[in-house]
């Protein structure tokens, strides 16, 4: 083999958006305003209306906010919030692992897919909370039951989306992997999992909200601590402001988890976003 000669460097065809820092700051400010505008209005309306609306069941927002600190920051963080989040994350992690593993297996084989798909559609159609009483019979009312309730409910969107994602991997890309004789493990990591990752993330996002719902429901059924348990306890003891703080906290937990999820997705699927943008912008 002889020496390579340098060739004229081709121009870099990267779509770089170069804006001034001032304009960028302005744009960021505007974005923040758009994002926070509606919540601010809603909170203001709630605050003002609830102040005048003298109902036992709808205490003033001011009172709810005042109760928030004493209710949650004096022991309930470790006593209720942490156990709840632990169940949620264990169940969710189990669902992701199960969903991706089974999804890759089923998605990789047309025969297995034809065999399993009707059953999967059936299980997916069952509303997950229905399974709580049954799973209680098998696993008792402890943490195991709750983790399994969350996992069995959240696994379906991940599983079905992974199947779709694996099935949708470009056949030419598969051929490329075959001609370069990529080993099975490399093929799994570099071709299958990455190729199906957009759909896996779609499923995982749906699964996250299902998991939160199931965490609360399973704790409402039977528990001695946790967010769902606390909210039901407050309600039964007519501690209405405290109950409302629990609902607010649940909402905040949901928002926080979805923000974390989006941050992870942003990094992992950066290529996907870029690719779609470049396709929309014409074939450069």
């Amino acid at each position: 083999m002889t020496v390579f000669s340098p060739r004229a460097a081709a121009p870099l065809a990267r779509s770089a958006t170069r804006r001034g820092t001032g304009r960028r700051a302005l744009a960021a400010a505007r974005r923040t305003l758009v994002v926070l505008g509606l919540p601010a209005v809603l909170i203001a309306v709630w605050w003002l209306v609830s102040e005048e609306y003298h109902s036992f069941y709808f205490p003033p927002l001011r009172e709810i906010v005042e109760t928030f600190g004493p209710t949650w920051f004096e022991g309930r963080i470790t006593g209720d919030v942490v156990p709840s989040l632990t169940r949620l994350l264990s169940g969710y992690a189990l669902a992701v692992v199960l969903g991706v593993v089974l999804g890759v297996l089923i998605g990789s084989s047309a025969k297995l897919r034809a065999f399993a798909e009707p059953v999967l559609e059936f299980f997916r159609a069952i509303p997950p909370p229905v399974m709580v009483p049954i799973l209680m019979l098998f696993f008792g009312i402890g943490t195991t039951m709750k983790v399994i309730v969350i996992a069995t409910g959240a696994v379906w969107p991940i599983l079905l989306n992974t199947v779709e994602g694996v099935r949708g991997i470009d056949p030419l890309l598969r051929d490329t992997a075959r001609t370069y004789r990529l080993r099975p493990l490399t093929r799994l990591r570099t071709l299958v999992l990455r190729g199906a990752s957009p759909q896996i993330f779609t499923g995982a996002r749906q699964a996250l909200s299902i998991a939160i719902i199931l965490m609360v429901i399973s704790e409402m059924f039977a528990a001695n601590n946790g967010l769902g348990f606390s909210i039901v306890q407050f309600q039964r003891s007519f501690a209405l402001p405290e109950m409302w703080t629990g609902i607010l906290l649940l909402g905040l937990v949901g928002v926080l988890l979805s923000l974390i999820f989006r941050a992870v997705e942003r990094v992992v699927l950066a290529w996907y976003r870029g690719q779609r943008q470049s396709q929309r912008g014409g074939n450069r």
Partner: peptide, 29 residues
């Protein structure tokens, strides 16, 4: 000892790998 270049370049390169990673992948194998 065989390599193939397909017509549809957009579908034969791994979009989640950089240019260098695409070239390097078969060499890792």
């Amino acid at each position: 000892g065989m390599a193939v270049v397909f017509q549809d370049y957009a579908r034969s390169l791994f979009p989640w790998l950089t240019v260098a990673q695409n070239v390097e992948l078969p060499l890792r194998e």
